Computed example of a mutant assay.
Amino acid sequence: MNYIKQLNAFKDWLLWNKIPTSAIILWHALMMINNATGWKKKFNAQNSMLQLLTGLSKQGVANARAELVAQGLIIYQKGHIGKAATYQIASLVNSVDQVLDQSIAHSVDQAHSVDPFVDNVLAIPKQEEEVEERRRGRSDSHLISIYEQNFGVLKPILRDPFMNWCQELGDELVIYGIKLAAEMDGRSYSYLNAIFKEWSQAKLKTLEEVNVYQAQKKAGIAKPVQQHKKKKQSAFDTLRAELRLEGAL
């Protein structure tokens, strides 16, 4: 399974389907675990781990899981004593592409039914642009919902800076950053912004890199972010420069 394509396909799937935020968070948590296992077709996940990654209660995980099963997004097999439950994540890549293609084709057909002289070359890009706008809007809503579920209402003035981080870091790191900030009880945008800024300056691009960085930081061996500051001139250096100038005159 291609991780990035699956994430993008899930965002596209959300354009046409509505599920609780808890189910969205659980789906991302299962994707993280599956990624850690090397993308096995079936993998095991303990409820305690899912509760830790999602911030949901035991019942909350059960309800979110039931929603994902009902939507056909995962296959779930209950575990037993000594063995965790088994999960399988359904691939959305091909099915979502088909839905988008059908939507674009349907929109173009409607345009032709209104005006038979609509130019094909102009109509298709316009419909693709509309689909892309809906895709971006749903993705923004999804991430803002996760933020507000953990930190409270995101002030309008902070929405653009927040979405800029989403564009730069990607959904996975943003969701993980929110989880990390909540665990540290730093429930404010400024605290979350400091985390994202540190990761950006350290040029961290993947969850694996972030995990390594955070582990090194906790152990006190992470390399500090380089801060380039202009060296101040000492009084002696200033005086020497002035004497040199006078000599030249």
Rank of each mutant, 00 (worst) to 15 (best):
residue 172 E to T: 12
residue 235 A to E: 11
residue 220 G to V: 11
residue 69 V to I: 14
residue 152 G to I: 13
residue 4 I to L: 12
residue 223 K to D: 08
residue 31 M to I: 05
residue 232 K to I: 13
residue 223 K to F: 04
residue 243 L to Q: 14
residue 194 A to E: 10
residue 239 L to H: 05
residue 209 E to G: 08
residue 34 N to A: 08
residue 16 W to N: 10
residue 146 I to E: 15
residue 146 I to A: 12
residue 93 V to L: 03
residue 19 I to L: 03
residue 38 G to L: 06
residue 120 N to L: 09
residue 90 A to S: 08
residue 183 E to N: 13
residue 216 Q to Y: 05
residue 44 N to Y: 11
residue 145 S to V: 07
residue 125 P to T: 14
residue 9 A to G: 06
residue 90 A to P: 01
residue 210 V to A: 05
residue 19 I to D: 01
residue 179 K to N: 07
residue 142 H to N: 09
residue 174 V to K: 01
residue 82 G to Y: 00
residue 123 A to W: 04
residue 226 Q to Y: 08
residue 127 Q to A: 08
residue 153 V to F: 11
residue 241 A to H: 13
residue 145 S to N: 15
residue 123 A to C: 11
residue 65 R to G: 00
residue 33 I to R: 09
residue 2 N to A: 06
residue 7 L to W: 08
residue 148 E to W: 08
residue 109 D to N: 07
residue 168 E to I: 11
residue 59 Q to H: 11
residue 199 W to F: 00
residue 181 A to L: 00
residue 42 K to H: 13
residue 96 V to C: 06
residue 86 T to V: 12
residue 103 S to I: 07
residue 143 L to G: 10
residue 162 F to R: 10
residue 87 Y to E: 04
residue 162 F to E: 08
residue 108 V to Q: 02
residue 228 H to E: 12
residue 172 E to K: 05
residue 186 G to W: 04
residue 213 Y to F: 13
residue 38 G to H: 14
residue 183 E to I: 03
residue 9 A to H: 05
residue 183 E to S: 07
residue 89 I to S: 03
residue 110 Q to Y: 07
residue 95 S to V: 12
residue 33 I to M: 05
residue 158 L to G: 04
residue 103 S to R: 12
residue 229 K to S: 09
residue 54 T to N: 09
residue 124 I to P: 03
residue 241 A to K: 14
residue 220 G to C: 10
residue 83 K to I: 15
residue 34 N to D: 09
residue 229 K to P: 05
residue 142 H to M: 12
residue 88 Q to L: 02
residue 91 S to H: 02
residue 27 W to Y: 14
residue 193 N to R: 12
residue 118 V to R: 10
residue 183 E to G: 04
residue 36 A to N: 08
residue 194 A to H: 07
residue 70 A to N: 05
residue 81 I to G: 05
residue 245 L to Q: 14
residue 236 F to Q: 06
residue 169 L to G: 00
residue 29 A to C: 13
residue 89 I to K: 02
residue 202 A to R: 04
residue 59 Q to S: 14
residue 37 T to Q: 06
residue 26 L to H: 07
residue 199 W to H: 03
residue 44 N to I: 08
residue 107 S to P: 01
residue 156 P to H: 12
residue 71 Q to Y: 05
residue 101 D to N: 08
residue 152 G to C: 08
residue 18 K to S: 13
residue 100 L to T: 06
residue 240 R to P: 00
residue 81 I to F: 06
residue 139 S to H: 11
residue 217 K to V: 00
